Amino acid sequence: MKLSETINRIAPLDQEAMQEARQRWNSIAKPLHSLGKLEDCVCQIAGMTGDSNVQLDKKALMVFCADNGVVEEGVTQTGQEVTAVVAENFLSGQTSAAVMCRLAGADLYPVDMGIRRATGVPDYHVRRGTANMVKAEAMTREEGIRAIETGIRLAGVLKRKGYKIAATGEMGIGNTTTSAAVASVLLSCQPEEMVGRGAGLSSGGLERKLQAVKKAITLHRPDPDDPVAVLHKVGGLDLAGLAGFYLGCAAERLPVLIDGFISATAALAAAKLCPGAKAYMLASHCSKEPGMKKILTYLDKQAVLHAEMCLGEGTGAVAFLPVLEMGLGVYREMSTFSQIQIESYQELK
């Protein structure tokens, strides 16, 4: 589906379903609001789907994989060839996210958005990796839009397969560098506020990374009011695909979990393209990358988990799924005050 058509399909949350969910929570025989953000998440999901009978029995993690030309600048600890290796390992179940998906009962779908070499991963590539953004635009505008629309299409695939919630993940050596550039521009903040050590950089590597982000922004001067321009000039194919995926999930009324810094940066781009898409996102955890809190503040999200994770792949989002399901279990199965014939709690001023 086209980007403009998707944005036009994104509707506000169903307030009646949310109110029904809140009333259900308040009727359960426990102190009011005592499951905190878990209660809020269930109510929000009711609003997303338009049904207070919330179901999360079919879960998926969609992992967007792509290579980034900026690796040439020495901004990573490992080489670009690692992207393809890890992407293939998703298929064999030999990644952190794959192990966690098995434990969480979630289906894992890696997609090749632009890995340098062909792999056995389902192929949706727009191009074989981006250009080095320090020297040229990462991709053309047309390629950026194609990547966004690919993400939209993949959200539709999950919806048609009957999934009730989607988690977001990514794999691409160098993508904390592109994410820092995109987030710096979209939030109009200094790169120093966004650039972190990623998967483990030395102080020298961190400085190279910071300079690469600064040079790319100075060279291309992307317009913060044009998220597509930001993504195609200093972003990545994984980020563009993820941004489209968030928009597609919102259009399909499919709840979607934000993972860490990279996933959140894509969510930021999606929200800039369509502010209404924010309502369909849930923040799973707060990555320890320095820009994460700023992005969540802009998105008006509060992460539930604070475990200082920074692995990527969707691991934080998948880790949140069992916690969310525990809250939903209470919501669906616990007795109400009237059923056990005791006086209900009252809201106190």
Rank of each mutant, 00 (worst) to 15 (best):
G79H: 12
G156D: 07
A277M: 05
G129L: 08
T49V: 13
Q77M: 08
L187T: 05
E5K: 13
K349M: 11
T49R: 12
P110M: 07
Q55V: 14
A250E: 04
A106S: 15
E207A: 14
I342Q: 13
A167S: 14
C274K: 10
S344W: 03
E252G: 05
A147G: 11
G260T: 11
G162P: 08
G235D: 06
C41S: 12
G114R: 05
E88V: 02
E142V: 06
A270P: 00
L186K: 08
M309E: 09
A155M: 10
P122K: 12
L328C: 09
R197G: 09
A167L: 08
V54D: 02
G36L: 07
R332T: 14
M133E: 06
A84Y: 00
G244K: 00
D238Y: 03
G244I: 03
M100S: 09
A270W: 02
A21I: 04
F90W: 12
T6P: 07
T130I: 08
R128L: 10
A229R: 14
L311E: 06
V121K: 01
E5Q: 14
V42G: 00
K30Q: 12
L282D: 00
E252Q: 15
V304I: 11
K2L: 07
L38T: 05
F261C: 04
A212G: 10
E16M: 09
A216M: 11
K293E: 15
T168V: 15
M171W: 06
M281H: 07
P255C: 09
Q211L: 12
K301D: 08
S287F: 05
G205H: 07
Q211M: 12
E207V: 12
C43H: 01
S287Q: 03
G198Y: 01
A251D: 06
P122L: 09
V318L: 10
H306P: 02
